[in-house]
């Protein structure tokens, strides 16, 4: 059973969504529906499942329905049709009390525009999730302080949100979501306002957190590099429709349509491709020059060892965790992998 299961979900914004639904189900596009009925299609037959412990990244242009999708998971928005179930429970079946309980203990959320409480200090904001659960101030302040430190805002805990910069506010939102320590985290463009240094630091923290705690994360981003770095699976939305779901490599190698292709066109391949994907396997490596070798792990991304190779003019020996040689990498494979046309072939032959 998947952790989060979304089945044929439609969401139509407007006065009479149920009347417009058949039209959408019959294949009308977002633009047509808007022109004919004045209703906005938020989601159009979206189905996907997210497994426990994975990071699912959702991408798409502005207005493609990413925030709408993520709000269905904790039922901030009710679907017009379809089923959203979390751990096997249909969220629409929850009554008021159960829903509150579910939101308190099952999932937390980071908001795109931060959603901080302007009348509460940073400390109170971060502790809010614990406050509504009824935790005592001393206890929740302790947890809150830990999270504030984790996002690097120590010293600002008694400031108010509007005394902080945008990026700092976003980190408060992040700390608030971390504080309740829930299984599922919904992160709507959680890093969008951060500077590159802090951003990459936060990404690293998230990856570390993931390897340790194995949370289920739904992450929205506009940044392809970020999605490739964080995502176990990536879903791409266009006009409310889910056009492709797959692993990062899948998306880059086999874009489902022009829209996805346009999306991945400028990707930094060295950051996405792992050594094992393009190496020449050990049993076919007779003609590789093995006089000057550098050892690299099979799960390393190209950009992690590329400079070293270029400088030392060596070939690579690809090893797994135990140190067994799995294959070799030469300049030939590398240059193929990094230029667009050769890419797909290189991967296929691997």
């Amino acid at each position: 059973m998947s952790k989060i299961e979304i089945k044929n979900v439609y969401k139509i914004f407007g006065d009479q969504p149920s009347k417009v639904l058949p039209m959408v189900q019959n294949g009308a596009t977002k633009e047509e529906v808007l022109e004919k009925t004045g209703h906005t299609v938020g989601l159009d037959n979206v189905s996907l499942s997210i497994e426990e412990g994975e990071t699912f990244v959702c991408m798409g242009l502005s207005g493609s329905g990413k925030s709408t999708l993520i709000r269905h998971i904790n039922r901030l928005i009710d679907p017009t049709a379809g089923v959203v179930s979390v751990e096997g429970t249909n969220v629409m079946d929850l009554d008021q009390k159960k829903l509150i309980d579910f939101r308190r203990h099952k999932m937390s959320m980071v908001f795109q525009r931060f959603g901080l409480f302007p009348h509460k200090t940073v400390l109170e904001n971060v502790g809010y999730g614990l406050e509504v659960q009824g935790q005592k101030p001393e206890e929740r302040n302790k947890t809150a302080m830990e999270k504030i430190e984790a996002v690097g805002l120590t010293g600002f805990e008694h400031q108010y949100p509007n005394q902080l910069s945008g990026g700092m506010q976003q980190r408060v939102g992040l700390a608030r979501a971390l504080a309740t320590n829930t299984d599922i985290m919904l992160m709507d463009e959680a890093f969008s306002a951060l500077d590159p240094l802090i951003r990459s630091d936060m990404q690293k923290q998230l990856i570390d957190l993931q390897s340790e705690l194995k949370k289920t994360i739904v992450f929205i981003t506009h940044d392809l590099d970020e999605s490739l770095r964080l995502g176990d699976h990536i879903g791409i939305l266009n006009g409310g429709r889910l056009v492709q779901v797959g692993t990062p490599i899948d998306i880059i190698m086999n874009p489902a349509d022009d829209y996805v292709e346009a999306f991945v066109k400028d990707v930094n391949r060295a950051k996405v491709i792992k050594a094992k994907i393009i190496m020449t396997p050990a049993n076919k490596s007779n003609d590789v020059d093995k006089s000057n070798l550098v050892k690299i792990g099979e799960d390393q991304f190209l950009d992690e060892f590329l400079p070293q190779i270029v400088c030392s003019n060596a070939n690579c020996e690809v090893v797994d965790k135990e140190g067994n040689v799995k294959g070799y990498l030469t300049k030939k494979e590398l240059s193929k992998a990094l230029t667009k046309e050769h890419m797909a072939n290189a991967v296929k032959s691997a």
Partner: peptide
Amino acid sequence: KEVVEAAEAFGAS
């Protein structure tokens, strides 16, 4: 709206 949503999302009654 997002501030109210935030309160809801964390399970405020």
